[in-house]
Simulated assay, not measured.
Amino acid sequence: MSQLDPSQMSRRQQFAESYRITKQADPLIGLWLLLSFVGGAVVGGGLFWLLPPSGGILSIVFTVVGALLGGVLLALIVFGRKAQAAAYARIDGQPGAAAGALNMLRRGWRTEPAVAFNKSQDLVHRVVGPPGIVLIGEGNPTRVKSLLLDQRRKHERVVVDVPVHEIIVGNGEGQVPLAKLNRTVMKLGRNVRPADITDILNRLKALDAIQGKVPMPKGPVPTSMKGMRSNLRGR
């Protein structure tokens, strides 16, 4: 049975799919959401109860509204974090997982998956954004380092005035875990103005044309990760 593309899902279907995947990774997600709703409701209701005028029907209405708002808000925050953690855990270790995570970056970042690839399914992805050019490798660390070095040289020949950063995704020493990849990329600083990013992308087209389009391994990124992007980007 083929899985429905997230772009064809309604928001309700995407939420249900995210909940299903999150429950597989964390069977207690229902309890977490209930507790967070109750906690948010207590705080929200208490704050609204203290608003003037105190006492009377109006205060009761405000308290109920505040409780509902506080409960729903906290439950959504908890669900967002749990769902994101579940999505990362689901794809961690799969070829192309880093590309799925990078697709959740905020606007202003341009991700190009698999600009380099070998027969062992080691990959190098490219992100262009405020830090400049970020090359992200995933796979065997030794082989990935060679791929990154080769890609760095090629990129520096095309964009000599733009900083090029390198990151290897993994759980070993000197590597960045998948769940922390986006935060690490965004903390690389601001070396490029937004107006210059278009020029960088245009210059990189020449390099991409020479290298050709590298095919991504089939099925590396679950569609659930893609469907969550609009809800979880930037969290």
Rank of each mutant, 00 (worst) to 15 (best):
S7E: 14
M9V: 05
R11K: 11
Q14Y: 02
F15N: 00
E17W: 08
E17T: 05
Y19H: 09
R20K: 05
I21R: 08
K23G: 11
D26W: 11
L28H: 12
G30L: 06
L31F: 10
L31Y: 10
L33Y: 06
S36V: 02
V38W: 08
V38L: 13
V38F: 07
G40Y: 01
V42K: 13
V43H: 07
G44S: 00
F48R: 00
W49A: 14
W49M: 11
L50F: 08
P52G: 05
G56A: 03
I57H: 12
I57P: 11
I60C: 00
I60S: 08
G71K: 04
L74K: 02
I77F: 13
V78H: 04
F79D: 01
A89R: 10
D92I: 03
D92Q: 07
P95Y: 09
A97Y: 03
N103I: 06
L105S: 07
R107T: 13
R110D: 14
R110S: 15
V115Y: 03
S120A: 15
P131A: 06
P131H: 04
V134H: 04
L135Q: 01
L135H: 00
I136F: 10
G137F: 05
G137Q: 03
G137P: 00
E138V: 09
V144A: 00
S146N: 14
L147T: 02
D150H: 14
R152Q: 04
V158C: 01
V159S: 09
V164Q: 00
H165E: 04
I167C: 05
G170P: 10
L178R: 09
L178S: 09
A179S: 15
A179V: 15
L181N: 06
R183E: 12
R183A: 12
K187S: 14
L188Y: 10
L188S: 05
D199Y: 08
L204S: 04
L204A: 10
K205S: 11
A206M: 13
D208H: 14
Q211A: 13
K213R: 15
K218A: 15
G219Q: 07
P220L: 01
T223Q: 14
M228K: 02
R229Y: 00
S230W: 10
R233A: 07
G234Y: 02
